[in-house]
Amino acid sequence: MSATVSGETAETTHAITVTLNRQERSAEVEPRLLLVHFLRGTLGLTGTHVGCDTTSCGACTVLLDGKPIKSCTFLAVQADGREVTTVEGLVRDGGLHPIQEGFKEEHGLQCGFCTPGMMLTATALLAENPNPSEEEIRWALSGNVCRCTGYQNIVKAVQWAAAKMAEEGR
């Protein structure tokens, strides 16, 4: 731990180790550093977006030990010792994850800003419920806001991924 001066008070930084996208990463962080800023600023992983910054829109969604959370409302120090998955971690063997293919095939995005969060929430849903109904998909995605698509094609993209994953026996 080293003492630094930042903001209005003197603080101590904390050493954290996070398993990020299946790789261990260690860093010294200020307590007030939000996970989303750790990912984007410290590590340069800009796939996780900052939307509303008020725990509403879901653009900053990442998986913490496999469960979706909003990384704008979580301190980087709280992630110490835990597993974090961002959109960059969806890639498998250099290829697209079925959920990414689904969004491409079904035009599940227009501007793309909400898409990383949508895909991570959908991935967690499919891990728990490989064959969700439309209602279950919409319920699961209710913490992720899209201002372009009207959600129709996002739902179709998740259904496409579910079918692909079932076919591949994942």
Binding site: H14, R32, L34
Partner: peptide, 11 residues
């Protein structure tokens, strides 16, 4: 939005 700096412990 970034909080004002603070000290942190996790007992």
């Amino acid at each position: 939005m970034i909080p004002v700096g603070f000290d942190y412990v996790a007992p």
